[in-house]
Each structure stands twice: as C-alpha cells, then as structure tokens.
C-alpha cells in the first residue's frame, strides 16, 4: 500500500536522500543545518511544505538516519516530515555496477512517486535556498508543465557554517564559483534543484531507472527527458547555495585516467539518450509498512524489481520526439 499521508496537500514537496554513512564528512550535520534553515524560511514565508527523506541502502548496525532526522525535527509534524527507508536488498537487486554504493536517483524516485505537494522539488541534503527562491515559492505562481532550475552558487568550504544565515550566503566574498545554467537544458549541478508540478513529475516517471550503470549525469539526463517531452525548462531566476564544491569535484581528478572505475560510474556515458521508466518506477510496487511515526519501510519484494535489462526502455531523443508527435 502506498503511503500518501493525510491532510491537505502542501504547496511544495522537498525530496532528499541519504544514509547514515558520513558521506563527504559530517553528512548528518550538514543535512540538518540546511534543513533547519530551509524549513525556517519556508515557515516564515507561509509556504506549506513537506520534506520527504528517502534512506537508501541503510547501513547495518547503525542508527537509521531517518530516526535521527525524526529526533532532530521532533517538533515538526509527521505530515511535514516523512521518511522512507528502503530495504538494502533493493540496492543489490537493482545494481548494474558494483562500484555504485548509493543509487541516489532511484531513491529520489521513491520520494517523487510518494510526494503529495502541488510542486515537487528534488534536491540534495546540503542545499540552502536563496531569498529569491523563497520569494518565488511564496508567490505560489509556479506554472504546471514547466521544469524550474536554479543555479548553484558554491561557497568556500572553509566557511564557518555553524550558524549560517542570509548574511553568509549572500556575501559575494564567500562565493567560490557559480555553476551557470544555460538553455536549452539548463544542466550543471541540476540534481540540486529540479522543481516541477506533481502531475508532470508522475508523467515523466522520475529519473532514469533503466540505465543503472552510472549515477553521474542522471540529473542532466532528466532535463533531456523533460526537453524532448516538450516540457519547457526555465531558470527560476534565483540561486541556491552549497558550501564547498561537492564530493564530485573533490574526487574527480582521481579518476581522470580510469573513468570507468569511478564510484559514480563512467562520466563518459551517453547521457543524451532518453528513457522510459516502467510502471513500477520509484519502487511503486514495494510493500510498505510504518516503522515509526512518519517513517515508512519499503520491504523487499522481487515483484517491485523490474527486469534487470529492459532495452526497449532506452530510446533515442529523436524517436521519443516522433513518438510524442
């Protein structure tokens, strides 16, 4: 049974994924700080919202990050903070590349499929919204059938983030790099901000689940899917912030000579192809049971796992456009 939650649907669902593995260093701390900040700004602006956290491949004998999150945000209603813990067996069953330790985009699909908000934002755990993004959301004037993107501003990693606020985020001296976005696809760190209305997100069926050999560029591949599906992609007109340049930038150089060995998969894969996820996308057929207030466990069932290889679901962009016509 799918956990849809009760009560009126919020304007915005924010989806993030992770696990208690200290990925990138102080993962939980970075996650909680950004979540506190964004939640406070959204509440202050009166934007109804829910957070959907998907814990993928939880680590045995470590506390669930979903539980730590629930403790950290004990004052937040279970309607506004929902977590889904995915049986780690799904990771093994779906794997097409043993080097990938975390199938982040299938995890995000779990959240997209179960989102309740009128608009669905997939982002990452340590992303801070800008004042401009909050203002756009407050207007409640986002258009359905449009994919909104925001440029990520990377702040210097040496910043003291213990008490982060607008003054730190907006200070240009703290900005190390702007990940510019350009039409038509507006890619470049797109996994940090993909905002689309609920109905369209369900029509697109989330990120590519057919190609599971790499996770890098799966976000850009989503933009391509939207583009060939005639969904306009636009810049929301305000940035998002990230402290540091991210683990990919930090580790990329190590795999320049052997890109196939990278833990994110081979960066050279042809990410301009288009996919067509099956009916069970986002582990839609996984049995669900509530394990805690606001936390749902997705138990393993082979019925919820699609075929290991389903080549019909990889299509060229041109054929997809012809199909759409």
């Amino acid at each position: 049974m799918m956990s849809g939650g009760a009560g009126p649907a919020p304007y915005l669902t924010i989806i993030a994924t992770g696990r208690n593995d200290d990925f990138g260093g102080d993962f939980n701390g970075r996650f909680f700080r950004a979540l506190h900040f964004n939640h406070q700004q959204l509440v202050a602006a009166g934007i109804t919202h829910e957070f959907v956290f998907v814990e993928w491949r939880p680590i045995d004998k470590r506390p669930l990050l979903a539980s730590l999150l629930a403790d950290e945000f004990a004052d937040v209603s279970s309607l506004s903070l929902r977590s889904f813990v995915v049986d780690p067996a799904y990771h093994e069953a779906l794997s097409l590349n043993p080097r990938l330790q975390f199938q982040e985009f299938i995890a995000k699909n779990v959240g997209i499929r179960r989102a309740r908000g009128a608009f669905v934002l997939t982002t990452n755990t340590d992303i801070y919204f800008s004042r401009g993004v909050i203002a756009r959301l407050k207007e409640t004037a986002l258009e359905p059938g449009v994919l909104y993107r925001a440029a990520r501003h990377d702040l210097m990693s040496a910043l003291d983030v213990s008490d982060i606020g607008w003054d730190v985020l907006e200070d240009e001296r703290n900005c190390e790099i702007v990940n510019a976005i350009r039409p038509p696809l507006f890619t470049n760190a797109s996994g940090d901000f993909l905002l689309i209305d609920h109905q369209t997100s369900q029509q697109i069926r989330g990120f590519n689940e057919v190609y599971r050999v790499a996770k890098i560029h799966i976000d850009g591949n989503f933009c391509m899917k939207a583009y060939v599906s005639d969904i306009p992609i636009v810049d929301i007109g305000a940035p998002i912030y990230h402290v540091g340049r991210g683990t990919l930038h930090a580790m990329r150089g190590m795999y320049n000579a052997r890109p196939g060995d990278a833990p994110w998969g081979d960066i050279r894969w042809k990410s301009d192809v288009v996919y067509d996820n099956g009916d069970g996308w986002g582990l839609g057929f996984a049995p669900e049971r509530e394990i805690d207030r606001g936390t749902t466990f997705l138990a393993f069932d082979w019925e919820a796992v699609g075929p290991m290889v389903d080549l019909r679901r990889v299509v060229s962009a041109g054929l997809q456009q012809e199909k759409a016509l």
């Binding site: 590349n97 043993p98 060229s316």
Partner: peptide, 27 residues
C-alpha cells in the same frame, strides 16, 4: 545523421547496460 547518432548512442547505452548486467550476473 542526427537520428543515426542518437540511435548509436542508444545502442552504446544498451551495450553498457548489457555489460553491467553481465558483470553483475558473473559476480
């Protein structure tokens, strides 16, 4: 040419998938 290139890309991606699946099954 565009269609051929796209189809070639699709074929490469399919080969990646097949290779990945073969490796996983081998393991």
């Amino acid at each position: 040419l565009v269609i051929a290139r796209e189809q070639l890309m699709a074929i490469e991606v399919k080969l990646d998938i097949l290779e990945g699946a073969a490796n996983v099954l081998d393991g």
